[in-house]
Amino acid sequence: MLELRGVSKAFAGPVLRDVTLQVPKGCLYGLVGPGASGKSVLLKLLVGLLKPDAGRILVAGEDVTDLDEIQLHRVRQRFGFLFQNYALFDFLTVGENIAFPLRQLGLTDEDELVRRVAERLQAVALSGFEARAPGGLSGGQKKRVGVARATVTRAEVVLYDEPAAGLDPVTSQKIFDLLAREQREAGATVLMVSSDVARLLTVTDRVGMLYKGRLIFDGTTEEALGSRHPVVKQFLHGEPDGPI
C-alpha cells in the first residue's frame, strides 16, 4: 500500500539515506528509532509535505513523488494524519475540528455531521466535548481529539506521529489499544511512529527501525523482538550498554 524506494532526504545534514520500505495493505506498521533518526520526516514525505532528494514514493501503486499540490490533494484524501503536536485548529471547536475533514470531502448534511462527530467522540471517550475549545483541553484529551479527527473519514491509510508522547502510562496504553481497535474495525493501513516502544509493540504487525537515517530492520514484531542486530536489540529492549 505504501512504498519507499531508495528515498534520501537532507536538510543541514542527511536525515534519510537510501530508505526502501513497504507497508502492506491492512498492516499496522510500527516505525521506531532514536530521536532525530528521520521518522517524522518519513511520514511527511509520504503525504507530500516534503519532497525527497532522491528515490520514489508510491501510494497504492501510484508514484506520487513528483505530483504538484493540486494533484496531491487527491492523494491526501486517502490519508488520515495524527500530528505529534495534535495540530488541532485553535480557531475551531472540538466538534468542528472533527467535522472538518468530512466537510472537505463534501459532506454537508448537518445531522449526519453531528452524528459522525458524536460517534467519534464516544470512541475516544470524550462524549459531550463538541463545543469545547481545543485550548482548554489537557494533552491526553487533545491527543484523543486528534485521533478522532484522523479516523473520522475512515481513510485507507492513517499515519500517527508519536500518538502517546507526553502521556501517562495508563493513557498511553489506552491510546494504543484505541488505535489498534480502530485499525481492525476500519481495515486501514496504519504507519505509526512512536518512542514508546514497549507499548507500540503490543499492537503492531510489523516493525521497522531507523538508525542514523537508514532502515536497519524491517520485519514482523516477533522477528524484531528476537533480533540479534546489536542496535535493534539494544533499542527495543532498552539496554543501557551497546552501540547506541
Binding site: K44, V47, G48, L49, L72, H73, R74, R76, Q77, F79, F81, F83, Q84, N85, A87, L88, F89, D90, F100, P101, Q104
Partner: peptide, 10 residues
C-alpha cells in the same frame, strides 16, 4: 503543525 494539518486534509 496546523498549516501542515490543513495540507494533509487537502
Amino acid at each position: 503543525e496546523q498549516i501542515d494539518a490543513l495540507s494533509t486534509l487537502a
